[in-house]
Design a binder for these strands. Structure first.
Lengths: 201, 201
DNA sequence: TAGATTGTTAATCGATTAACAATC
DNA sequence: TAGATTGTTAATCGATTAACAATC
């Protein structure tokens, strides 16, 4: 979560290998007690008078969140957004590897997008079965999301990262993470509107 | 927020122009009281025995969140993600209009991305001043985010929609909305890892 | 030892849920 | 009128914050 981002960023810079819960709390603008509680929840103990060892904390978080394990995923829909995700190099840090990309458009099949060869949808099911894929990224622009989700679930996919503006329904054991931007949009629109109402405050 | 998405979607289909708080609550899996409370918070009153008028609710939400106003924005960084956002047609529904795109890369300047001509960074400040732009979308892959943010703030930008994996700091009156995917990633990684630990539960 | 920071129990705060008279 | 749904007050629940003995 946010701890990991902060610690792995700041940890590289400064030589001191320990950090106090108060320092973390100040940087992330939360309560020091919260930090200690969260850490102890994942079986992480600090050292009295010194604080926490940065490396130790990072490793514990990696283990708790599963970043140390390799997760293989497929990406469906190689449009603008799909290409952006394929090109993003930050996933590997969290153990996520996109091992194949698929697209409905037969004209795109065989072409390379961000160094990844686009595969035909026909090979989707066999591929997932063969490699035991458990995560799929949905970046299809059209509203075939639900049908696709059903197909994915039927071959054993356990989590769907949904970047489409569609709400999809799946069995309870499957996780769907929606990455809609409409929520962020509403926050921004609200701020801009409110700004107009009271420009000075 | 979520109400608007649900109501504007379902409202188009069914003829009945009214909906009850219980129906909304069931669809969104929240408490009916919560719905009524949220609605009354934006000065929205229902009708006894009937419920709420769908159109009326939608309009009130639009007004409260500022979707009825026109918000003009600039986009900086026309990479994959920038292109995807430019091509996304859903923004207009919320009153957001991306009126110009900028990029550092001089070779891209003048070319068209998703129907929008890429402008030089040199013209960024004058453009913002001239058009009174108050929102900027940051999709620059490199770590020039902070410098860019400073420049944007200095010419009067009031909100920054940050799609870069960098944390940027701005004066308190400026809103920064981070659209990191690392949070979603951690949720997914956790689910997949936990799945392994107990496949049957 | 003295000082600072932790782990954890207790208290506060806010948000969510329940209950019910008022209303159409 | 009778029935159903609202608006709002009261109660519960959980999470955040405070306090403090234990620890290095």
């Amino acid at each position: 979560m946010r701890y990991y981002r902060f610690l792995s960023e700041s940890g590289a810079k400064k030589p001191p290998q320990t950090i106090t819960s108060a320092q973390i709390a100040a940087a992330l603008d939360i309560d020091p007690t919260q930090v200690r509680k969260d850490f102890s929840a994942i079986g992480l103990l600090g050292i009295g008078r010194v604080g926490f060892e940065v490396c130790e904390v990072c490793r514990a978080i990696r283990v708790a969140l599963g970043f140390d394990q390799r997760h293989e995923a497929v990406l469906i829909g190689t449009g603008h957004l799909g290409a952006a995700l394929l090109a993003y190099s930050g996933f590997a840090r969290y153990g996520l590897h996109i091992v194949a990309a698929f697209d409905m458009d037969q004209r795109l099949v065989g072409s390379k997008v961000a160094g990844c060869t686009v595969k035909s949808m026909r090979s989707l099911k066999p591929f997932i079965r063969k490699h035991g894929i458990r995560l799929a990224l949905l970046t299809t622009p059209v509203e075939a999301s639900q049908k696709l989700a059903d197909r994915l679930v039927s071959v054993g996919v356990k989590a769907i990262w949904n970047f489409t503006p569609t709400r999809i329904t799946v069995p309870p054991e499957v996780l769907v993470r929606d990455e809609h931007i409409s929520l962020g949009l509403s926050v921004i629109a609200y701020h801009l509107t409110h700004e107009v109402d009271s420009p000075s405050s």
